[in-house]
Simulated scan of single mutants.
Amino acid sequence: MQTPFFKTYRPAINLLFSLALALGVMGCEPDETQTVTTFTDLVFEDNFDVDGPIDESSWNYEIGNGINNGLPVGWGNNELQYYTDRPENIKVEGGMLHITALRESFQGSTFTSARITTKDKVEQRYGRIEARMQLPWGRGLWPAFWMLGSNIDEVEWPQCGEIDIMEYRGQDPSTLIGSVHGPGYSAGEAVSKEYVLPNDRFDTGFHIFGIEWGPDYINFYVDDVLYNQITPEDVEGEWVFDQPFYMLLNVAVGGDFVGPVGLNTVFPQTLLVDYVRVYNGSN
């Protein structure tokens, strides 16, 4: 396990330099006059140190194919997996959370996997949110570390807002995407940017995926690289990121974002999570 990762201050020149290295099509460069927040107050961490099931004081299982969440089969994205709480699909072992996608016939689906959330248990408004993970690979795999607005039951999606800290197409193992969704800029119209890992792949080692989030910005990081900043000026609609959000971790299989599962995709495939941490900050 590594010691907590955070940066206490990033001068504007370093922010601009990091953005100059990044690839992508949307988002903006940081405002040189913007206040930089120091995120040092650790308010939540799960280091997955105890073998067995997840800690249900912090995490919830989401089960099924989407129908029980009021969505069409496939979680609204034409996904192929059925999420379970079985140890075959999700367990803590060896200091890691393992979320494993399997090719199998189960409850009418052709794949199984797992999805967990911190809804009603760990919710955060602003701060640094990060996870250290090694990603699976193969065409049709869709792992994600993301957040939804805690008011989703009252206002539904996308009015509640969504922050995709990391999502990734398994067929493109050097590239990930960070996005925000809200009213007027959701699904295919989300505000997104890609980050390409130089000369490496996300399935061959661990990397830290995180955001630093304040009242008028969300900064996206891979390890120590800031690759995008999104502000209210970047969205074509209401800025809804001024309320508590909860975290989600999952591995989807197939669906609109990644396309069909490849004939050569090998199963099982596992997302390994070393830790999840949340920090508060002060100016």
Rank of each mutant, 00 (worst) to 15 (best):
S109P: 01
A22E: 07
G254D: 10
N47C: 10
V25S: 13
R86S: 15
M166K: 04
E154H: 00
E45L: 08
M26T: 10
A20R: 13
G184E: 11
V191L: 08
L226H: 07
G140Y: 12
I230V: 14
V50N: 09
T84N: 10
F17Q: 14
F209D: 00
M1L: 09
P173R: 04
Y275F: 15
E62H: 04
M96N: 12
A22V: 09
W59S: 06
D153N: 11
I218L: 04
P11R: 09
S18G: 15
I163W: 05
S18K: 02
A190N: 14
H181P: 10
P244W: 09
T8I: 12
V191T: 15
D31T: 04
N78R: 12
Y9F: 15
L272K: 12
G27F: 05
S105C: 00
Q269G: 04
V73M: 01
A190G: 13
T100P: 05
Q243P: 01
T270S: 04
D256K: 12
N280D: 15
T117N: 12
Y185C: 04
T265L: 09
L71C: 07
Y82P: 10
C28G: 14
Y168L: 11
T270K: 02
I63G: 06
G182W: 07
M133C: 11
P183H: 03
T8Q: 15
W146I: 13
I90A: 02
G210R: 12
F206K: 02
N228P: 08
T175A: 00
F245A: 06
P173T: 05
D85T: 07
Y275H: 14
Q269A: 15
F241R: 01
I90D: 04
P143N: 09
P215F: 10
F145K: 01
D223M: 08
V191H: 00
G188A: 14
V266N: 10
H98R: 12
D223C: 09
E189C: 02
L248I: 14
K91Y: 01
G95L: 06
F220S: 00
V258I: 03
G281D: 01
V253R: 08
